[in-house]
């Protein structure tokens, strides 16, 4: 008997590579889910990890840092919040801009914050691509 492999189709599930906690410290939703304003997890609602090793949904910590009371501190440990550049998750995310009211995050996450748009439209456009 001889077996020849033609093709493989795998089913994966993706997870954020976060060391500890599975819940966002601010919205208490799992990282693999979304912050309260988003619909689609993953690219549209990324997470960040601070130098203090506390992780949050990008949109959650961004909103927090925008408030005056935050004074740029991590809500968990009250240390100045800076993203940990060594973590792969954080690459391309610049939170310092959040303090001036502007966020430039990487690639497809750019429209993440405001994106609560209608899913149907979203999917429909994707659908056209597939055809």
């Amino acid at each position: 008997m001889k077996i020849k492999l033609n093709s493989t189709y795998a089913i994966y599930s993706w997870h954020w590579d976060v060391p500890e906690d599975e819940l966002c410290g601010i919205c208490r939703v799992a990282f693999d889910g979304t912050c309260p304003t988003c619909k689609y997890p993953g690219d549209q609602c990324p997470i960040v990890i601070g130098e203090c090793h506390h992780a949050f949904h990008l949109h959650c910590i961004w909103k927090w840092l925008e408030t005056d009371t935050s004074r740029g501190l991590c809500p968990m440990c009250r240390q100045p919040f800076h993203t940990d550049k060594s973590m792969a998750v954080n690459q391309g995310i610049d939170l310092t801009a959040a303090e001036s009211g502007m966020v430039q995050n990487r690639g497809s996450a750019a429209n993440g914050g405001e994106n609560t748009s209608d899913s149907t439209v979203d999917l429909a456009s994707e659908e056209e691509d597939t055809e």
């Binding site: 077996i3 033609n6 493989t8 189709y9 089913i11 997870h15 590579d17 997470i47």
Partner: peptide
Amino acid sequence: KGRKLLLSPSLCRVDIN
């Protein structure tokens, strides 16, 4: 970057001769 994949082995399908 920053994500890992977990395989669900029994859900994988293969096409073999």
